[in-house]
Design a protein around this nucleic acid. Structure first.
Lengths: 136, 136
DNA sequence: AATAAGAATAGTAATCATTATTAATTTTAT
DNA sequence: ATAAAATTAATAATGATTACTATTCTTATT
């Protein structure tokens, strides 16, 4: 039998990671979460953050946003929306495009990909990085 | 003075890397390019592939496609098009959506991002990975 | 409450893609 | 022909993420 439901004990730390993701408008990196929760749990380890993020991913409670900048980012907002991602610093901003369902379906047929809950990201340059051209 | 034009000597290997990218429909990884060109240049080193890819990126002759799967992929097709990316294996397929220019502009104003030549990628699951559910 | 089995953790080591370094070779301009 | 600059192979280093392990915490069952 195949269940995602691999019964797990409670974990206050995991709960707080999810809660933090759900209540922030940022799209935090693992590091950000770690720094943030270290105040609450001084013994927290970065490995624990990564491990729990992966568990939450398995449970489909969060998604990853992969940026051109080093760190992955995480999002607990599962509602249908899209992202604009800065290709220099990795900053992520939520957007809402109205997706034409039928053309999405045509895309699926053409490409053979399943785009059931497609993650769409548009990469550009955020204001800060644009002004900061000096050292590019 | 600020020029992208940092005069460079010729490099047969760099030329071949670009040519390979321009003539393939794949969106190769650095490894793929390395394996491919090693037949031509038995002394080729993977570092050389990466270094030249970055030079070509600086010169804006190619772009990177970052996939959820490990390796980055590269594309020398600079014409306006979009990508569907498999979130499991990283495979990339070109697509063409007609982008509403004015709504893109509205997005720029709302987000503060510059989307001059936006890279749009839609991630889903390719046919192979979909059928291959067994080991997920 | 006591306790044993399973889950979670901190701390650390390992991995893996990519980048930097370096000494040697190749290319270009003179 | 030759010196300066660019390129390279080989190797080491980096940095984000994952794996490992011995210990601690939870939970279910007496």
């Amino acid at each position: 039998m195949k269940t995602v439901n691999m019964k797990r004990n409670h974990s206050i730390k995991r709960d707080r990671i999810l809660e933090l993701l759900q209540t922030t408008l940022e799209h935090p990196t693992a590091d950000w979460i770690y720094e943030r929760l270290k105040k609450e749990f001084p013994d927290l380890s970065l490995g624990t953050v990564y491990r729990n993020l992966r568990i939450l991913l398995d449970e489909k409670k969060i998604i990853t946003i992969r940026s051109a900048a080093g760190h992955d980012r995480f999002d607990a907002d599962l509602s249908s929306h899209q992202h604009v991602v800065c290709e220099k610093c990795g900053k992520v901003v939520d957007i809402l495009m109205n997706l034409d369902k039928s053309s999405l379906h045509r895309l699926e047929e053409k490409t053979g990909f399943s785009l059931a809950s497609p993650r769409i990201s548009i990469s550009g340059l955020c204001r800060d990085c644009r002004l900061d051209k000096s050292e590019s």
